[in-house]
Every structure is written in structure tokens, then in C-alpha cells.
Design a binder for these strands. Structure first.
Ligand SMILES: [Mn+2]
Ligand SMILES: [Mn+2]
Ligand SMILES: [Mn+2]
Ligand SMILES: [Mn+2]
Lengths: 216, 216
DNA sequence: TAAAAAATTTAGATTAGTCTAAATATTTTA
DNA sequence: TAAAATATTTAGACTAATCTAAATTTTTTA
């Protein structure tokens, strides 16, 4: 099929495509911690295989075939993360690196049975949607807590930053997926926000409010 | 750590070491479907890393460090096979290839938690012992059904041939791990054997009797 | 709109793993 | 115990993925 490395490139291009329609060499290099020259080489190979549309100096988009592969990798990544948290009692901040390896296990039978075993979960531990066996999933509409006004409420449904540091911080503050929150105060000076979470008040910075997402 | 390929070499050397004390270049090449020249190159690298004892033309043995890695790969292989059969409802003849990939997932935390989740199984679906988290396991004593005499009985506890064809044949004959069998007849001419298995008689060839193992 | 800056590609190396063919060592056998 | 046969290693080449440095293209800016 495709190498481990090719799969990682396709996944990176897919994620970057959600931001901008066309993806640049440097964006890919940054996201994969590699050099632009290496990216150019790989882009030629992926174009050769019909997985991306590539014109020199013009950036790339995924073809339908490339997107299908990218989505299947993402399905595996998120299902494994769900498994690790729900069945093996990992914390939500501990699963990403292991899932980066598990997502490359090739058996489709395996991932489909894993999906059955867990009852077809719709979202991974970070609130990201899990594509079904046909690659279909809702791109759910989320917005940052920072966009709420006083007295607005919502349900925590995702994060924009997946770093261990951020996830651990949220865990400590009890700002986890599914929690109902209400904005009680917004600081004019630094745009920090005070939330009502269950029976407690939690004070978060503008940065945190930007990276914490609620369902619309 | 070590590459996927290095791990496969160590595992192959480990398995071959169970037969003969020292393992030859050609034996390794055959077991990994590669060429002797490639094996020589890898042996130099593994010796350099202190994982094998290698003297030109004299074959190799694992060092303690090499054996530790080999056993940890085998632990992962067998635990994943158990998981696939017991939790995901794979058949015992369908799990080996997937486990060949899963055994290279590096997280020790993952495999230890998987072990916990499944209640620390002692044997994999083919009857092979699963090393514990410290690499310890009983090398259980098994002997081929072919060594039994008339009226001797035993419990099916392992296989010498792990091929899909053989496992499917055994499944069809209901000769699966844990079944109690008794030798009722041995054919002088072709050494085929008739077994009593539960309420049925099963006729197996000498070859099958040699590859089907019972606890001593 | 021409020069400067930034982005991207090309050229040329490097490393891991593999191969074939040739050379060398070991083992078998007569 | 010296050929012959077999096993193993070496030599030299190839592919995938990576890198640095140089060349080229695109974009920005003055
Ligand atoms: Mn993740
Ligand atoms: Mn996730
Ligand atoms: Mn196996
Ligand atoms: Mn097994």
C-alpha cells in the first residue's frame, strides 16, 4: 500500500487543508518537523501516485483518492484514542503519541471490529468526530468560548490545542468534554473569562478561551 | 529504540535458538524471506549494538539485552493475538499477520494495560505462553500426538505449525486448544492416528499428529 | 515596477535496508 | 586429506527518506 511516511504526509495535508484551500510546502514541513526540500521530494512522489494535485511552486490539494486515505488514517487514530481512554483507562492527554503509531496498522478488518467492539463511538476523547467505515462524519460546528457574551452558555465539545500541557490544564480545571458552562464575567482589560462550571467558578485566560470549544 | 526490521531479526533469532544453540545466516535468511547477504549486514549492525554475539562464519546467539527485546516483542505479539480472538472475535487462524504489525507498537504502558484489561492471560490462542511484564514465562512441556501410544490421552495444548491452512483444518476437525483426546487406533502402515474427541472419532495423518501438541 | 525578501525546488550527499554476483571460508565426501 | 559442495561474506548497486547548500521562482515592498 503506502508507507508510514506517505500516510503521515497525506494526513498532514488533510489537516492543513481545513484551514486554507491550498497547502504550501513550508506549512507541511513545519507540521511534520522536516525540511522544505524533503517535502518537495515527497510531493512529487504523491503526485506521481495520484494522491495529490501538485503544481510546482503552487502548493497542493488532495485528490479524492488521497483524501480517502487521509480520512481512513484519521478514523484509525481517533478510534484507537477512544479505545485507549475508554477501555485501557489512559488519560485524554496520554493517548495521542500511541495513536500516532496505531493509526498505521493496516488491517481494515481490525479497525472495523474495534469500532463494533466499542459500539461505534461518534467522537474521540478530544471531541473530534470519528469517521465511519465509509469515511463519513459530521464536521460539527464548534466555536471558541472566547466568542460567547455574558450569560451565554454552552457545552464543552472540543479543543483547538491538543497539546499535553493544555489538556492537563483543562483536566485540572475540570473543563472536560461534556461539561456545561456559562460565562459570568468577561474582563475588559485582558479579555479573561470567568465561567460557571457546575457549582464552581473558573477563571480562564483569553488564550484558554480561544482554544476551548463549545457546540453551537 | 530499534527499528521494525531489527526487532524482526531479533525475534527470528530467538525462535530459531529454541531449536539449535547457535543460529546460522541461512536459517535467518530463510525465516525472514530475505537473502544471506542482507542478513550478514544486519548481523554486523546488531553485534555493534550489543544485541547478538556474532563471529564471522560461526553463527549467532542473542545477548541478554537482545533476548530481552525479543521476548518483549513476543509478549506483545501474543497478547495482541489474544485480544483479537477474545475481544474482537477474530478466528485463531486470522490473527497472526495483524499481530506481526501490532507487535512493533513501542509503548510498554500500552501492552501492560492491555494485559491488565484482559486479566493477564497465560497462553495465546495457539497455546503459546505469554511472557509477563518482566519477560518471565513457563516454557511448557508439550509433545506431539504422534508420540502417544494406544489408549493414552491428553489435552490439546499447542501447535507446531502456525499456518492458516493447518489451523483451519484443526478448527474443522474440532481439534482445538483445551479439547481432551484419546488415541484409539494407530495405523501400522502410514502411522495415521484415530482419536476419540468428545463423542466423535477423528482420523488424522502422521503429519497432523506430529504438528498437534498435548500437555505432558 | 525593479530590487529585496521569502518560498520553493534542485543538486548532491547520507543512512537503512535490500539485492546480485563474485570472493572466500567451512564442511562434506570420496 | 584434497577436491567438491555448501555456506557465508564482501563488493558494488539500488530505493526510500532525509539533509544542507545552491539555484530558481514567487511575493513583497519601496
Ligand atoms: Mn490525537
Ligand atoms: Mn484526538
Ligand atoms: Mn502469531
Ligand atoms: Mn500465537
Amino acid at each position: 500500500m503506502n508507507t508510514f511516511t506517505e500516510e503521515n504526509y497525506l494526513k498532514a495535508i488533510y489537516h492543513l487543508s481545513l484551514q486554507s484551500s491550498s497547502v504550501s510546502t513550508n506549512q507541511i514541513a513545519a507540521s511534520l518537523n522536516t525540511k522544505a526540500a524533503s517535502v518537495t521530494d515527497m510531493l512529487k512522489k504523491l503526485a506521481e501516485k495520484g494522491l495529490i494535485n501538485y503544481t510546482k511552486y503552487q502548493g497542493v490539494t488532495l485528490t479524492a483518492a488521497g483524501e480517502k486515505i487521509a480520512v481512513s488514517i484519521i478514523r484509525k487514530h481517533r478510534l484507537w484514542e477512544y479505545f485507549l481512554v475508554e477501555k485501557l483507562n489512559f488519560k485524554w492527554d496520554e493517548v495521542h503519541d500511541v495513536a500516532e503509531e496505531l493509526e498505521h496498522i493496516s488491517s481494515k478488518e481490525l479497525v472495523d471490529r474495534l469500532d463494533d467492539f466499542m459500539g461505534h463511538p461518534k467522537y474521540d476523547p478530544h471531541g473530534d468526530p470519528i469517521p465511519d467505515s465509509n469515511g463519513l462524519f459530521k464536521t460539527h460546528e464548534l466555536k471558541p468560548v472566547a466568542t460567547l457574551v455574558i450569560n451565554e452558555n454552552g457545552i464543552i465539545s472540543g479543543v483547538r490545542d491538543h497539546s499535553t500541557a493544555f489538556l492537563q490544564y483543562l483536566e485540572r480545571m475540570q473543563l472536560t468534554i461534556g461539561k456545561k458552562i456559562k460565562v459570568t464575567e468577561i474582563n475588559d482589560y485582558d479579555h479573561s473569562v470567568i465561567l460557571q462550571v457546575e457549582d464552581k467558578k473558573v477563571h480562564i485566560s483569553r488564550e484558554v478561551a480561544n482554544n476551548l470549544l463549545i457546540a453551537i
